[in-house]
Simulated scan of single mutants.
Amino acid sequence: MKKILMALAVAVTLFFSVTALANTDASVEQGATEGQIWAQVKEGAQGVTTSTGEAHNQLINTYDLRVFELRSDILAPALMAALFGMIIVFILFIKINGISKLHGGFSGKMVYRWSKFDVSIHWLGAIPCMLLILTGLVLIAGRFFFQPYIGEGVWATLVNASKLIHDYMAIPFMLGWLLMTVLWAKNQMPKMYDLKWMMVVGGYINFGPFKGKHPDAGFANAGEKMWFWAFALFGLVISASGMLLLFPNVFEPSRTVSLIALVLHSVSAIIITAFSIVHIFMATVMSEGGMECMVSGYCDENWATQHHNLWFDEIKENGTLKYKE
């Protein structure tokens, strides 16, 4: 009886050993096959399907993954740096250098500079621009920099709100961009004296050989012209790419075109963000009396003579100088 039981035990052991070995071999063979298939997929191997859409015979568009890596490794950190990095740089610069004060103080005489319509279209473009920057930051970089530190419910609400605001602010931004580009371009043409303005950094440096320098400037100085043309060019790119992404059913872009549009949209957003931070700091903090221009449309006479002397001389000579009553 013992011999029979021992024989059965040996048989059962041998059965399970052979079965396990067979399963192991099958798993190894299956793993090798899956590895070969995945390698072929990454190389762009094509198959057969009943689909009639673009790239219907390609299982996976591997360049999608490269765009995602570009977003996580370059675009998201660059946008964070363009916003928060520039803010930090300007805070340190102001702490070390100080602001550009009016040497003669405020005169109390307010000179007409911008019409109410100009002020309106400035804010038509500026307010949506800032909302697009903040919501775009969430959409591009939020997954990598914000999501790990907040709850899933808060993150879902934040992303949903950002997407809605981003979509709805796109049209007013494009309208403001178009009006500003068309109507303001005539005062933004480069002049030879702009080079001298750049060489002394506009007179905003309060130490060393730059201190006390006040270079010539027309209606717009060289820095404002740089900002204007950057805004005009990259605003065009961001508007065109944004339309493709916002209305895919209307324009029906290909998968490749959509991905290119996404990259161009992000790069343009990074550049506009960096310039916007500079523009905001220069208007609100660095230039004493500068913000008043885009609030009332008027500027102090001493501000005009210190920062835009050629323009002020011109309007005095041609009789278009107007003071606020």
Rank of each mutant, 00 (worst) to 15 (best):
A9C: 03
A9P: 00
T33R: 13
T49E: 06
T50F: 04
E54I: 08
Q58W: 08
L59D: 01
N61F: 08
F68D: 15
L75G: 02
A82P: 04
G85R: 12
I87L: 07
I94V: 15
N97Y: 07
G98S: 07
L102Y: 05
K109N: 14
S115A: 04
M130I: 13
L131P: 04
G136L: 11
V138L: 14
E152S: 13
L158G: 09
H166L: 10
Y168E: 03
P172E: 12
L175H: 03
G176E: 10
W177Y: 10
T181H: 02
V182G: 03
W184I: 06
M198I: 13
G203Q: 10
N206W: 08
F207L: 05
F219K: 15
N221Y: 01
A222K: 03
E224V: 02
K225A: 08
M226F: 14
W227G: 12
F231Y: 04
I238T: 10
I238N: 04
P248D: 05
F251G: 02
E252H: 13
P253Y: 09
V257Q: 00
L259W: 08
I260V: 15
H265W: 01
S268I: 04
G289R: 00
M294F: 08
V295N: 01
T305A: 09
Q306E: 15
H307R: 08
E314Q: 14
I315Y: 03
L321K: 04
E325K: 14
